[in-house]
Protein backbone atom coordinates (compact mmCIF):
# COMPACT_ATOMS: atom_id res chain seq x y z
CA UNK A 1 0.00 0.00 0.00
CA UNK A 2 1.16 3.48 -0.88
CA UNK A 3 0.34 6.23 1.60
CA UNK A 4 0.51 9.85 0.49
CA UNK A 5 0.35 13.04 2.52
CA UNK A 6 -0.40 16.36 0.89
CA UNK A 7 0.46 19.63 2.62
CA UNK A 8 -1.28 22.80 1.56
CA UNK A 9 -2.95 25.90 2.90
CA UNK A 10 -6.69 26.21 3.38
CA UNK A 11 -8.16 27.17 0.01
CA UNK A 12 -5.35 25.73 -2.11
CA UNK A 13 -7.23 22.53 -2.81
CA UNK A 14 -5.10 19.94 -1.02
CA UNK A 15 -8.24 17.91 -0.35
CA UNK A 16 -9.28 18.09 -3.99
CA UNK A 17 -5.78 16.95 -4.99
CA UNK A 18 -6.12 13.90 -2.73
CA UNK A 19 -9.55 13.15 -4.17
CA UNK A 20 -8.40 13.41 -7.80
CA UNK A 21 -5.47 11.18 -6.92
CA UNK A 22 -7.86 8.60 -5.46
CA UNK A 23 -10.12 8.75 -8.51
CA UNK A 24 -7.09 8.39 -10.81
CA UNK A 25 -5.95 5.30 -8.93
CA UNK A 26 -9.47 3.91 -9.29
CA UNK A 27 -9.27 4.41 -13.07
CA UNK A 28 -5.99 2.50 -13.05
CA UNK A 29 -7.87 -0.43 -11.52
CA UNK A 30 -6.62 0.11 -7.99
CA UNK A 31 -8.31 0.58 -4.64
CA UNK A 32 -7.99 4.01 -3.11
CA UNK A 33 -9.03 6.18 -0.21
CA UNK A 34 -8.78 9.97 0.17
CA UNK A 35 -9.64 12.07 3.18
CA UNK A 36 -8.62 15.30 4.85
CA UNK A 37 -7.00 15.60 8.25
CA UNK A 38 -10.34 16.21 9.87
CA UNK A 39 -10.38 19.72 11.11
CA UNK A 40 -12.03 23.06 10.89
CA UNK A 41 -11.13 24.41 7.46
CA UNK A 42 -9.79 27.95 7.50
CA UNK A 43 -8.40 29.78 4.53
CA UNK A 44 -4.62 30.11 4.72
CA UNK A 45 -4.14 27.74 7.64
CA UNK A 46 -1.86 24.75 7.05
CA UNK A 47 -3.98 21.77 6.05
CA UNK A 48 -3.24 18.15 5.25
CA UNK A 49 -4.96 15.62 3.09
CA UNK A 50 -4.23 11.92 2.74
CA UNK A 51 -4.52 9.32 0.03
CA UNK A 52 -4.00 5.58 0.16
CA UNK A 53 -3.55 3.45 -2.95
CA UNK A 54 -3.41 -0.34 -2.97
CA UNK A 55 -4.12 -3.35 -5.15
CA UNK A 56 -6.36 -4.90 -2.50
CA UNK A 57 -9.21 -3.57 -0.37
CA UNK A 58 -8.06 -0.84 2.00
CA UNK A 59 -9.31 -1.58 5.49
CA UNK A 60 -7.28 0.75 7.67
CA UNK A 61 -9.20 3.89 8.71
CA UNK A 62 -6.71 5.77 10.84
CA UNK A 63 -4.86 8.82 9.58
CA UNK A 64 -1.57 8.43 7.72
CA UNK A 65 1.44 8.47 10.07
CA UNK A 66 4.19 6.97 7.93
CA UNK A 67 3.69 8.26 4.39
CA UNK A 68 5.57 6.89 1.39
CA UNK A 69 5.29 10.18 -0.49
CA UNK A 70 4.82 13.79 0.57
CA UNK A 71 3.44 16.52 -1.69
CA UNK A 72 3.90 20.15 -0.69
CA UNK A 73 1.78 22.72 -2.51
CA UNK A 74 3.46 25.75 -0.96
CA UNK A 75 7.16 26.10 0.00
CA UNK A 76 6.45 28.35 3.02
CA UNK A 77 4.89 25.33 4.71
CA UNK A 78 8.32 23.77 5.17
CA UNK A 79 8.97 26.20 8.00
CA UNK A 80 5.42 26.16 9.35
CA UNK A 81 4.87 22.43 9.80
CA UNK A 82 6.89 19.24 10.14
CA UNK A 83 6.43 18.10 6.54
CA UNK A 84 8.73 15.10 6.90
CA UNK A 85 7.03 13.68 10.01
CA UNK A 86 6.95 9.89 9.77
CA UNK A 87 8.19 9.93 6.18
CA UNK A 88 10.11 6.81 5.26
CA UNK A 89 13.86 7.14 4.59
CA UNK A 90 14.67 7.73 0.92
CA UNK A 91 11.04 8.54 0.15
CA UNK A 92 10.18 11.23 -2.40
CA UNK A 93 9.12 14.75 -1.44
CA UNK A 94 7.53 16.72 -4.24
CA UNK A 95 7.60 20.48 -3.66
CA UNK A 96 6.00 23.24 -5.65
CA UNK A 97 8.77 25.83 -5.76
CA UNK A 98 10.57 28.09 -8.21
CA UNK A 99 13.91 27.66 -6.48
CA UNK A 100 16.05 24.66 -5.69
CA UNK A 101 15.40 23.81 -2.08
CA UNK A 102 18.18 22.17 -0.18
CA UNK A 103 17.80 22.01 3.56
CA UNK A 104 19.20 19.79 6.26
CA UNK A 105 15.80 18.39 7.15
CA UNK A 106 15.50 16.89 3.68
CA UNK A 107 18.85 15.11 3.51
CA UNK A 108 17.35 11.65 4.06
CA UNK A 109 14.78 12.04 1.31
CA UNK A 110 14.59 12.38 -2.44
CA UNK A 111 13.49 15.95 -3.10
CA UNK A 112 11.79 16.84 -6.39
CA UNK A 113 11.35 20.56 -6.97
CA UNK A 114 8.83 21.59 -9.59
CA UNK A 115 7.57 25.05 -10.45
CA UNK A 116 3.89 24.14 -10.68
CA UNK A 117 2.89 27.71 -9.81
CA UNK A 118 4.62 29.03 -12.92
CA UNK A 119 2.80 26.51 -15.10
CA UNK A 120 -0.52 27.28 -13.39
CA UNK A 121 -0.06 31.04 -13.76
CA UNK A 122 0.60 30.61 -17.47
CA UNK A 123 -2.33 28.29 -18.11
CA UNK A 124 -4.98 29.29 -15.55
CA UNK A 125 -3.75 32.85 -14.97
CA UNK A 126 -4.03 31.86 -11.31
CA UNK A 127 -1.84 30.05 -8.82
CA UNK A 128 -3.88 26.83 -8.67
CA UNK A 129 -1.50 23.92 -8.33
CA UNK A 130 -3.56 21.15 -6.77
CA UNK A 131 -4.18 19.31 -10.03
CA UNK A 132 -1.04 20.55 -11.74
CA UNK A 133 1.32 18.99 -9.21
CA UNK A 134 -0.27 15.57 -9.75
CA UNK A 135 1.67 15.46 -13.04
CA UNK A 136 4.82 15.43 -10.95
CA UNK A 137 3.39 12.73 -8.69
CA UNK A 138 2.66 10.49 -11.68
CA UNK A 139 6.14 10.94 -13.09
CA UNK A 140 8.06 10.55 -9.83
CA UNK A 141 6.16 7.55 -8.43
CA UNK A 142 4.98 5.83 -11.59
CA UNK A 143 2.04 4.63 -9.51
CA UNK A 144 -0.69 6.22 -11.61
CA UNK A 145 -0.85 6.95 -15.31
CA UNK A 146 -1.38 10.29 -17.02
CA UNK A 147 -4.41 8.74 -18.71
CA UNK A 148 -6.00 8.00 -15.36
CA UNK A 149 -5.37 11.53 -14.11
CA UNK A 150 -6.96 12.88 -17.28
CA UNK A 151 -10.03 10.72 -16.71
CA UNK A 152 -10.26 11.87 -13.10
CA UNK A 153 -10.05 15.49 -14.25
CA UNK A 154 -12.88 14.88 -16.72
CA UNK A 155 -14.88 13.40 -13.83
CA UNK A 156 -14.21 16.24 -11.49
CA UNK A 157 -14.95 19.04 -13.95
CA UNK A 158 -17.85 17.49 -15.88
CA UNK A 159 -19.57 20.06 -18.11
CA UNK A 160 -16.60 22.43 -18.15
CA UNK A 161 -14.64 21.41 -21.27
CA UNK A 162 -12.30 24.41 -21.11
CA UNK A 163 -11.36 23.76 -17.49
CA UNK A 164 -10.75 20.10 -18.32
CA UNK A 165 -8.47 21.01 -21.20
CA UNK A 166 -6.45 23.50 -19.15
CA UNK A 167 -6.01 21.04 -16.29
CA UNK A 168 -4.86 18.29 -18.64
CA UNK A 169 -2.35 20.66 -20.21
CA UNK A 170 -1.01 21.76 -16.84
CA UNK A 171 -0.63 18.18 -15.61
CA UNK A 172 1.18 17.16 -18.81
CA UNK A 173 3.51 20.18 -18.67
CA UNK A 174 4.59 19.42 -15.11
CA UNK A 175 4.87 15.70 -15.92
CA UNK A 176 7.37 16.55 -18.66
CA UNK A 177 9.33 19.03 -16.53
CA UNK A 178 10.00 17.02 -13.41
CA UNK A 179 12.79 14.49 -13.14
Amino acid sequence: MLEIRIHGRGGQGAVTAAQILAISAFYDGKQSQAFPRFGVERRGAPVEAFCRIDDKTINVRSQVYAPDVVLILEPSLIEAVDVTAGLKKGAPIIINTGSNITCAAFKDFKVHCVDASKVALEIFKADIVNTTILGAFAKVTGVISLDAINKAIEDRFTGKPQVIEMNKQAVKRVYDQVD
Binding site: A18, A22, I23
Partner: peptide, 12 residues
Protein backbone atom coordinates in the same frame (compact mmCIF):
# COMPACT_ATOMS: atom_id res chain seq x y z
CA UNK B 1 -21.74 5.75 9.80
CA UNK B 2 -18.67 7.33 11.33
CA UNK B 3 -18.65 11.09 10.83
CA UNK B 4 -15.69 12.33 8.73
CA UNK B 5 -14.05 8.89 8.63
CA UNK B 6 -16.87 7.76 6.33
CA UNK B 7 -18.95 10.86 5.71
CA UNK B 8 -15.99 12.74 4.21
CA UNK B 9 -13.94 9.96 2.63
CA UNK B 10 -13.44 9.37 -1.08
CA UNK B 11 -13.31 5.71 -1.99
CA UNK B 12 -14.68 3.47 -4.73
Amino acid sequence: LDGFTLSHVFEP
